[in-house]
């Protein structure tokens, strides 16, 4: 009862604080902009903890956040091994291979309008399909280790990046291209100095979409077979043993890795496309 009462009181207080903060005079300052979502997240954690303890929910259904935190602290070595296996070996290598292949393919396709007209609709179509379904096939072809996961990631990230890059290469205006021609710039010069830079906002859009897809691909591919390490392997086996605190710990690591990966790509985007209106800010 004490837990439930405390939860209700904390929730009401946090809600009141957030409403007050977001209507206060400082609502445009960065501190408040950061504090409000942080308070909201904290409230969810506290309510979760309080409800689990107050209602006596068994930990095989939903472990409280403190138990998950303790599990993360006590099994960092396992989490690190899994992280290296799934993220660094599987997702990251596949991401690099898939994205560079897609950008290179886009540059090749771009020379032929006929191919572009044919490949764009097909690429758009394939990008909407459940490509994750190829995971069992690729696991069969490339074996259980990280190579098959990287292959799944390549298949998943290829088409979104391809479609975005092809669109991006068409983004420079005819006027700018004509200007390059008046300077008698070669194809390579036009590509490097005008069209690739102009395509960067589009390419980064594809790259950002691909970060999430890469991590999903690497984790789900492990459900179809993996060596005895890796985030997807750990999730599926620990779920089987009903050790849900470990599962939540892996999910926390995956969430953290996913946001950090996305954040890094977004930072690279800021550095590369500093000239674009969306990055200049007000």
């Amino acid at each position: 009862m004490i837990w439930l009462g405390g939860v209700a009181a904390f929730w009401a207080a946090a809600l009141a604080l957030n409403v007050w903060l977001s209507n206060s005079a400082w609502r445009r300052t960065w501190a408040v902009r950061l504090a409000v979502p942080a308070i909201f997240g904290l409230t969810i954690l506290v309510v979760w903890e309080g409800l689990v303890r107050g209602l006596g929910v068994p930990s095989v259904i939903l472990p409280p956040p403190t138990a998950i935190g303790a599990r993360i602290a006590s099994s960092t070595s396992i989490l690190w091994v899994d992280f290296v296996q799934t993220f660094v070996k599987g997702a990251l290598s596949g991401y690099v291979m898939g994205c560079s292949a897609a950008v290179l393919t886009a540059i090749v396709i771009d020379r032929s309008p006929f191919l572009k007209q044919g490949l764009l609709p097909v690429g758009n179509f394939i990008a909407a399909l459940p490509i994750i379904g190829t995971a069992p096939i690729l696991v069969m072809w490339f074996g259980f280790d990280w190579q098959s996961k990287a292959a799944v990631v390549v298949a998943m990230v290829f088409f979104p990046v391809l479609v975005n890059t092809v669109q991006g290469l068409a983004a420079s205006d005819p006027m700018q291209r004509d200007l390059m021609r008046t300077w008698s710039a070669s194809y390579g010069q036009t590509l490097l100095k005008l069209r690739l830079p102009a395509a960067m906002p589009f390419i980064f859009n594809g790259l950002k979409i691909a970060t999430t897809l890469a991590l999903i691909g690497a984790i789900v591919a492990e459900f179809f077979g993996s060596p005895i390490r890796g985030m997807g392997f750990r999730i599926s086996t620990e779920v089987g043993r009903l050790a849900l605190d470990m599962v939540w710990a892996e999910i926390a690591v995956a969430a953290l890795a996913g946001s950090a990966f996305y954040g890094l790509v977004a930072l690279a985007e800021r550095a590369v496309t500093f000239w674009h209106p969306s990055q200049r800010g007000e």
Binding site: L215, I216, F223, I235, G240, V247, I251, S259
Partner: peptide, 15 residues
């Protein structure tokens, strides 16, 4: 949107 939400699928099913 940056989180691989799909990873929690097995847990939801089993729980």
């Amino acid at each position: 949107q940056t989180i691989p939400i799909l990873a929690i699928a097995p847990m939801i099913i089993v729980v």
